[in-house]
Design a binder for these strands. Structure first.
Length: 816
DNA sequence: GACCTGCTGCGGCGTG
C-alpha cells in the first residue's frame, strides 16, 4: 500500500478541502486509508472536526481510485437520526461532488420528502441517499426493494451514540443486518461522539466476523471552559428549588457581552418562565430572544434556527431540542440552568458554542439551589477526566423484531430459517432462542395463543415457505405505523386567525376556562375554545398568565455524575483551595456537619428527624430518583416487616424520605439489615408494584409490535383509547398468556431500564461495603430540606401491610 | 432557612 497522500484522488480531495478552508485531520486520513483497505468501523471525534466528511470522502476517493468496482445506482446510504440534519448535509455533499467533478446525485428521503420526489427516487435511485432509520424500514416494506441496495458500497450510521441506547438503535441494527445480506461489497461505518462504552458501541453496530473492523479516534481534543455563576452570598441561593430565576440578573451581562447565547433548561415550562423573567428584567431584549423546545411548532422552530444561523438572535432558551442538529456558528456562549444530570449531556451542550475545532467552548453553569454548586464542582472534575456516560444497547426487544418481520413480509417476504440465522447475528438478538423465534412467527401469523380468534392479528401468511402479507389493508396500516417512537396525547395550539404556535397537553387545557391566559413559545395567549382537536387562542395582553406543564420524561442523575458528586462531598469538609464552589458552600456544610453529618464517599447517611409533622427518615444514596424510588419502597417494605407502619414517600436525585405519624423502628442495630443486599431482588419485587410499572411499559410495546395501531387512515385515534386498549391487552396477557414474550419484555424493561437492576445491585454493594451513619436531628438539615419541599408537592402513600400481604398471596397463587 | 417541574426523536395512505 502506498502512502495515502500518494493515492490517486487524494490531491483532488486535499485541494478541495483546502479551498473550503479545512485541512485534513490525522483521523480523517486514517479513515480514508482504512476504508481503502476494505475496513468497516467506527469514527470517533468531537463535533466540528469533520467526522462526517471523513467517511464521505473515503468513499469518493475509493471511487476515484477504483471506478471499475462500482456499479450504477445507489452507492452511499447515510443514516441520520434527525431529519433536520439531512438538507444541509445533502447540500454540502452535493457541492463537494460537483467541485470534484462527479455527476453523482445526492438525495434525501424521509417523512418530509414529497411524493413525486419519492417516485422519482424509486425509478432511479441517486448515488447518495440520506435517510432516517424509520424511512429505511419503510423502504424495506416496498416491493423489490433489494434492487435499490444491490450496488451499495458504503453504509454510514451518523450520530450512532444517539441511536445506540434506544429502540431506534435496534431498528438500525436490523437495517445493517439486512443490507449486509443484500449488498455483497458493503462497508459499514459508524460515526459517534465520545461515550463511555466505545468498544461495545462497535460490537453492537458491527457484530459480524466476516467484516474487517476498526475504530478510529481523533487525537484532537475540544477545549472547554466551565464557569459557575456564583451568587455574591450563599444566602442568595435557596436551599431548594429548580427554577434558578433568582440569579437571572447575573445572566444578563453574559448575554450582553456574547455574540449569541444558548440557554439550556431541563424542562419546557422552565424555558417559558426564563423567557418571561429575562424580558421582565431587560425589556429591550424583546425581539432578540426566543424559545425553542419540543412543543413549539415546527415552523416556528425552523424559523428560530434560521435566525440563530444568521446571528439575528441574541439568545435562545432551549431544552434538549437544541442538543443536536445543525451547528449555529454565531453561538459563542452556552448557559446551563440547573443540573444537566449527566456529564455527556453537559459536554454536548458546551460543544454547541465555539464550534470550530480550534475555538474553546464556553459553558456557564447556573445553580438553582445551593447544593447544586457541588454538582458544578463535580461536573468540572468529570469533564477534566473526560469520564462520560455509557449508552447501553437494548436487547431482545421482541416488539421491534415483530415489527421488522411484518415489514419484511409486506416487502419481499422472508423465509423462516434463513432469516433466523441472519437476525441472530445482530447484537440485540444474538441470545434469541429458537422457541422465541417460533413465538414471533406464530404471533405475526396467528396473533399468538390468546388472540388467535381475531382475524386482524393474522397479518402474515405463509405461501410455499415464504412469509408474506397479502392483504393490502394490513400492508397499508403497517406502513403507516412503522417506527418505535410512541407519542403522548397533545393538542395543537392555533390562532383564531390561523397560524400554529405549538402543542399542549390535554389535561392542562382541561383546567382552563375560556378567557384564561397562558404562555406558549414565549407568547401570552388567551384560551378561546377547543375545536376539532385544536386549541384556538388569540393574543392576550394579560399580565397574569399560567405556564403550561407537560408530562415529559424525567432525567435522572447519571451514575457517572453521582460518583463525582459523592467524591465532592468527601472533599467538602476540606475544600481544596481552587474550588470556589465548595468554599462558598462552607457555611452550609458547617451547618450540615453540626446538625448531622456530611457523608463521605464510603458512607451512607441516614437521618432521623422528628418534627411536628411526624417522624421522618431520610437516606442519601445519591443514585438518582429512579433508583431512589425503588430503594425507598424496599426500605419501607422491610421496616413494615418489623412493625406494621405506613409511610409517605418523597425523593429527589440525592436521597429520599419516609414519613410516618408513628415512631419509625429504625436503630443502629437494625439499619444494616434494612439496607442489606441479601434477598435484594426478591424483596424489591415484593415491595414495588412491578405489575403497574410493566403495564406502563407495555403501552409502547403494544404500539411498536402492532397490537395497537397509533394511526389509522381517515380515522382519528387519540392516545387515551390507545392507553385503554393496550391496558386491556395487558390484562388479557397477564391472565391467559403469561408466557407471552411481549409481556415478558415489559417486565424486563422495568427491571433493566427503570429499576436499572445492575446499578441498583452495584449501589447496594457499595452501601454494604461502606459505613452507614445514623444521625438524629430535631430540625431539617440542608440535605433533607429539598426533599421535604418535594414531598409537600406530592406524596406517594405506601400500601398498608395488610393490602400488601393480600397482593403477595395473590401473586404467589398466580405464579403457581 | 423555603419551594411548587420534569427531554428528545419518526412516520403514510387512498384511486384510476
Amino acid at each position: 500500500m502506498n502512502k495515502f497522500s500518494e493515492t490517486p484522488g487524494y490531491s483532488i480531495i486535499a485541494d478541495w478541502m483546502a479551498a473550503s478552508g479545512n485541512k485534513p485531520f490525522d483521523f480523517q486520513a486514517k479513515c480514508w486509508q482504512q476504508y481503502a483497505q476494505g475496513y468497516s468501523g467506527l469514527v470517533i471525534a468531537p463535533t466540528g472536526f469533520g467526522k462526517t466528511f471523513s467517511v464521505f470522502l473515503a468513499l469518493i476517493i475509493d471511487y476515484l481510485n477504483h471506478p471499475g468496482n462500482y456499479q450504477p445506482g445507489l452507492k452511499l446510504l447515510w443514516i441520520t437520526p434527525l431529519r433536520s440534519l439531512s438538507k444541509d448535509l445533502a447540500r454540502a455533499m452535493a457541492t463537494a461532488i460537483a467541485e470534484i467533478g462527479l455527476d453523482w446525485e445526492v438525495g434525501v428521503r424521509n417523512g418530509d420528502t414529497p411524493v413525486n420526489e419519492r417516485q422519482r427516487q424509486t425509478r432511479n435511485m441517486p448515488e447518495v441517499l440520506i435517510v432516517t432509520p424509520e424511512t429505511l424500514h419503510l423502504l424495506f416494506a416496498q416491493k423489490n426493494n433489494s434492487a435499490f441496495f444491490k450496488s451499495l458500497q458504503c453504509l454510514a450510521v451518523d450520530e450512532w451514540h444517539e441511536l445506540l441506547g434506544s429502540k431506534r438503535g435496534v431498528l438500525t441494527e436490523l437495517a445493517v443486518n439486512r443490507l449486509l445480506s443484500v449488498a455483497p461489497n458493503l462497508r459499514v461505518w459508524g460515526i459517534s461522539a465520545t461515550i463511555g462504552n466505545i468498544e461495545q458501541a462497535v460490537d453492537v453496530l458491527l457484530p459480524y466476523s466476516r467484516l474487517k473492523r476498526t475504530v478510529i479516534y481523533s487525537k484532537a481534543k475540544k477545549k472547554i471552559d466551565i464557569i459557575s455563576i456564583m451568587p455574591d452570598e450563599i444566602e442568595e441561593l435557596p436551599w431548594a428549588g429548580h427554577l434558578g430565576t433568582r440569579l437571572a440578573y447575573k445572566v444578563l451581562p453574559i448575554i450582553d457581552k456574547s455574540r449569541t447565547t444558548l440557554i439550556f433548561t431541563n424542562t419546557r415550562s422552565q424555558s417559558e418562565m426564563w423567557y418571561q423573567t429575562l424580558l421582565d428584567l431587560s425589556p429591550d431584549l424583546a425581539g432578540q430572544i426566543a424559545i425553542h423546545h419540543g412543543s413549539v411548532d415546527m415552523e416556528l422552530r425552523t424559523w428560530i434556527e434560521d435566525m440563530l444561523q444568521t446571528g439575528q438572535l441574541k439568545a435562545v432558551i432551549a431544552t434538549s431540542s437544541l442538543d443536536l442538529g445543525v451547528d449555529f456558528k454565531p453561538v459563542d456562549t452556552v448557559i446551563q440552568i440547573g443540573s444537566p444530570k449527566g456529564v455527556a449531556r453537559f459536554l454536548q451542550r458546551a460543544g454547541r458554542s465555539g464550534h470550530s475545532p480550534f475555538e474553546t467552548s464556553v459553558i456557564y453553569f447556573l445553580p438553582t439551589h445551593s447544593l447544586e454548586l457541588i454538582e458544578a464542582a463535580a461536573l468540572k472534575e468529570a469533564a477534566k477526566k473526560q469520564v462520560v456516560e455509557d449508552r447501553l444497547p437494548m436487547l431482545l426487544t421482541f416488539d421491534v423484531l415483530v415489527q421488522y418481520l411484518v415489514t419484511l413480509a409486506v416487502g419481499e417476504g422472508f423465509r423462516e430459517n434463513e432469516l433466523f440465522e441472519q437476525v441472530r447475528q445482530t447484537y440485540a438478538f444474538s441470545e434469541m432462542e429458537p422457541q422465541e423465534w417460533q413465538w414471533c412467527l406464530n404471533f405475526i401469523t396467528h396473533g399468538g395463543s390468546s388472540l388467535d380468534a381475531y382475524e386482524e392479528f393474522h397479518k402474515v401468511v405463509v405461501e410455499d415457505g415464504l412469509y408474506k402479507v397479502t392483504s393490502r389493508r394490513i400492508a397499508m396500516l403497517h406502513r403507516m405505523n412503522i417506527g418505535v417512537i410512541v407519542s403522548d396525547a397533545m393538542l395543537k395550539v392555533k390562532f383564531m386567525t390561523g397560524g400554529y404556535i405549538g402543542m399542549i397537553e390535554e389535561y392542562f387545557i382541561a383546567k382552563l376556562n375560556p378567557g384564561d391566559a397562558f404562555v406558549l413559545a414565549g407568547r401570552v395567549l388567551e384560551f378561546v375554545m377547543i375545536k376539532d382537536m385544536h386549541v384556538l387562542v388569540r393574543s392576550s395582553k394579560s399580565k397574569k398568565a399560567l405556564t403550561p406543564s407537560w408530562l415529559g420524561g424525567r432525567l435522572p442523575l447519571s451514575s457517572n455524575l453521582s460518583r463525582f458528586l459523592r467524591q465532592k462531598y468527601t472533599e467538602a469538609s476540606h475544600p481544596a483551595s481552587g474550588e470556589k464552589e465548595l468554599r462558598l458552600l462552607k457555611p452550609l456544610f458547617d451547618r450540615q456537619e453540626k446538625t448531622s453529618h456530611i457523608p463521605k464517599e464510603n458512607e451512607l447517611l441516614v437521618e432521623m428527624i422528628d418534627t411536628r409533622e411526624g417522624y421522618h427518615l431520610f437516606i442519601y444514596p445519591f443514585e438518582g430518583r429512579y433508583i431512589h424510588e425503588i430503594i425507598s419502597a424496599l426500605v419501607a417494605y422491610r421496616i413494615s416487616r418489623i412493625m406494621p407502619i405506613s409511610f409517605s414517600i418523597a425523593m429527589n436525585d440525592y436521597g429520599f424520605e419516609l414519613l410516618s405519624d408513628q415512631p419509625i423502628p429504625v436503630t443502629e442495630e437494625n439499619i444494616g439489615d434494612i439496607l442489606s443486599s441479601a434477598n435484594l431482588m426478591n424483596d424489591i419485587f415484593l415491595s414495588v408494584n412491578a405489575t403497574e410499572m410493566a403495564r406502563r411499559k407495555f403501552r409502547d410495546i403494544a404500539v411498536i409490535s402492532g397490537l395497537v395501531l397509533q394511526k389509522y387512515h381517515n380515522q382519528y385515534k387519540n392516545n387515551k383509547s390507545l392507553q385503554a386498549s393496550s391496558g386491556i391487552i395487558f390484562k388479557v396477557f397477564e391472565e391467559y398468556d403469561n408466557q407471552n414474550l411481549l409481556l415478558r419484555q415489559a417486565y424486563n424493561e422495568v427491571f433493566i431500564h427503570q429499576m436499572e437492576e445492575p446499578r441498583l445491585v452495584a449501589g447496594f454493594e457499595r452501601i454494604n461495603k461502606g459505613k452507614i451513619i445514623l444521625k438524629r436531628a430535631t430540625a431539617f438539615t440542608p440535605l433533607s430540606f429539598p426533599i421535604k419541599v418535594d414531598s409537600l408537592r406530592q406524596s406517594i402513600s405506601s400500601e398498608s401491610l395488610e393490602t400488601r400481604i393480600t397482593r403477595m398471596q395473590q401473586e404467589a397463587k398466580r405464579s403457581k
